[in-house]
Measured scan of single mutants.
Amino acid sequence: MSIQHFRVALIPFFAAFCLPVFAHPETLVKVKDAEDQLGARVGYIELDLNSGKILESFRPEERFPMMSTFKVLLCGAVLSRVDAGQEQLGRRIHYSQNDLVEYSPVTEKHLTDGMTVRELCSAAITMSDNTAANLLLTTIGGPKELTAFLHNMGDHVTRLDRWEPELNEAIPNDERDTTMPAAMATTLRKLLTGELLTLASRQQLIDWMEADKVAGPLLRSALPAGWFIADKSGAGERGSRGIIAALGPDGKPSRIVVIYTTGSQATMDERNRQIAEIGASLIKHW
C-alpha cells in the first residue's frame, strides 16, 4: 500500500482519535458579512469528516447552483462504474471539434489522439474542462443518470439537468442544476469515506481534487503551510461562485467545507476574496 493510499485508508482512524471539535460562531459572522459585502445569498456548511456531524452552517438547506462543483460527483459516478466493471479508466475516447464547448483548455489539445477516461476526469476536476465533463456525462448516460446515481446514494436534493455550459445559467428560483450545502457536503463525505467506492477509487477521487489547479484564489489562499486540501470550485452566471473541499491540518483532511453564493453584482475577484476570507476565519478558529 502506498503512503497516499495509507493516508486515505486511515482518515477515519486518525479522526477518531482527534480531540473533540467545537464550532466557532466567528466564522458564521464572516459568512454573514460576506453576504453584506456581496449583496447576495451565501450558503455555508462545515462537517466533521469522521462523524458527519454538522459543526457550523448557514442557509444549509437553500438551493444554490452547483456550477462546476458537480464534476466531482460526476467522476465519482464514473469511478463507481469502474468498480462495477462497467468502465475502464484506460479506455480512450475520441471526439471532434464539434464536441468542444466553451472553456476546454485540455480537451482542445487532444482532438487528434483523444483522451482516456482517467485523463478526462483529471481534466474535468483539476482544470474544470467543460468538454471533458460533457464527454464523461455521455459515458454514464447524461445528466439524468448522474441525478439517479445521487438518488441511489441517498441524495434526493442534488440534481443535474443540463450539460456544460448551460448548467451554469443560475436563474433565480430555478431548481435545475442545483444542490443544497448540506446535501453536497453529505454526498461528498460519502464519496470520500464511505463504502460506495473502493479504496482505490476513493484515493483516485481525492487525488484529482488535491491536484486542483484553478481554485488557488479561494480556500487555498488562506491555508497555512502543512495543511491538506482537496477541492473543486465552480463559477456561473449572475454572480455565482462555489467551492467544495476536504481539508485539515497535519497533512490530512478532517472536515468537509461547502460554500456557495449566487445573485451578486460583485466582480469575480471580490467573490473570490470573500470566500478566501471565510476560509481564513475557519482556519483561525479551527
Rank of each mutant, 00 (worst) to 15 (best):
residue 7 R to T: 14
residue 7 R to M: 05
residue 7 R to L: 07
residue 10 L to N: 06
residue 11 I to T: 07
residue 19 L to K: 15
residue 25 P to L: 10
residue 27 T to Y: 02
residue 29 V to L: 12
residue 31 V to C: 13
residue 31 V to F: 03
residue 33 D to N: 14
residue 33 D to P: 01
residue 34 A to C: 10
residue 36 D to T: 15
residue 37 Q to G: 10
residue 38 L to D: 06
residue 39 G to P: 05
residue 41 R to M: 11
residue 44 Y to A: 02
residue 45 I to W: 02
residue 45 I to N: 03
residue 47 L to N: 03
residue 50 N to V: 11
residue 56 E to K: 12
residue 58 F to R: 09
residue 59 R to C: 04
residue 62 E to I: 06
residue 65 P to H: 04
residue 69 T to F: 01
residue 69 T to C: 05
residue 74 L to V: 08
residue 76 G to S: 11
residue 77 A to T: 10
residue 77 A to N: 13
residue 78 V to C: 05
residue 80 S to M: 12
residue 83 D to A: 05
residue 84 A to P: 03
residue 85 G to Y: 08
residue 87 E to C: 07
residue 88 Q to V: 11
residue 91 R to N: 08
residue 91 R to E: 06
residue 92 R to L: 12
residue 94 H to V: 14
residue 96 S to Y: 11
residue 96 S to V: 11
residue 99 D to G: 06
residue 104 S to R: 03
residue 104 S to I: 02
residue 105 P to G: 04
residue 105 P to N: 05
residue 107 T to W: 01
residue 108 E to T: 10
residue 115 M to L: 13
residue 115 M to G: 02
residue 115 M to P: 01
residue 118 R to H: 15
residue 119 E to Y: 03
residue 121 C to Y: 00
residue 128 S to C: 00
residue 131 T to I: 01
residue 131 T to N: 04
residue 132 A to C: 03
residue 133 A to H: 01
residue 133 A to L: 00
residue 134 N to K: 04
residue 135 L to G: 02
residue 139 T to F: 06
residue 141 G to Y: 05
residue 143 P to T: 07
residue 144 K to C: 12
residue 146 L to W: 05
residue 149 F to L: 08
residue 150 L to S: 06
residue 151 H to I: 10
residue 152 N to I: 09
residue 153 M to P: 01
residue 155 D to T: 01
residue 158 T to I: 02
residue 159 R to L: 06
residue 163 W to R: 11
residue 163 W to T: 10
residue 163 W to G: 09
residue 164 E to V: 00
residue 169 E to A: 14
residue 175 E to D: 14
residue 176 R to Q: 13
residue 184 M to N: 01
residue 186 T to W: 15
residue 187 T to K: 01
residue 187 T to M: 08
residue 188 L to N: 02
residue 189 R to L: 10
residue 193 T to S: 15
residue 194 G to S: 14
residue 195 E to L: 04
residue 196 L to E: 15
residue 198 T to M: 10
residue 201 S to Y: 05
residue 202 R to I: 07
residue 204 Q to N: 14
residue 204 Q to K: 10
residue 205 L to Q: 02
residue 206 I to P: 01
residue 209 M to W: 03
residue 214 V to G: 06
residue 214 V to Q: 07
residue 216 G to C: 08
residue 218 L to A: 04
residue 219 L to W: 04
residue 220 R to D: 03
residue 221 S to G: 10
residue 221 S to Y: 10
residue 223 L to Q: 05
residue 224 P to G: 07
residue 227 W to T: 02
residue 230 A to D: 00
residue 230 A to K: 01
residue 233 S to Y: 01
residue 233 S to I: 00
residue 234 G to T: 00
residue 235 A to L: 06
residue 236 G to T: 05
residue 238 R to V: 09
residue 245 A to K: 00
residue 250 D to P: 09
residue 251 G to E: 11
residue 254 S to C: 14
residue 254 S to R: 11
residue 256 I to M: 07
residue 256 I to V: 11
residue 257 V to S: 03
residue 257 V to Q: 01
residue 258 V to T: 07
residue 259 I to D: 00
residue 260 Y to A: 02
residue 261 T to V: 13
residue 262 T to N: 10
residue 268 M to T: 08
residue 269 D to L: 12
residue 269 D to S: 13
residue 272 N to T: 08
residue 274 Q to A: 13
residue 274 Q to P: 05
residue 274 Q to E: 13
residue 281 S to C: 12
residue 282 L to C: 11
residue 283 I to R: 06
residue 284 K to P: 03
residue 286 W to N: 03
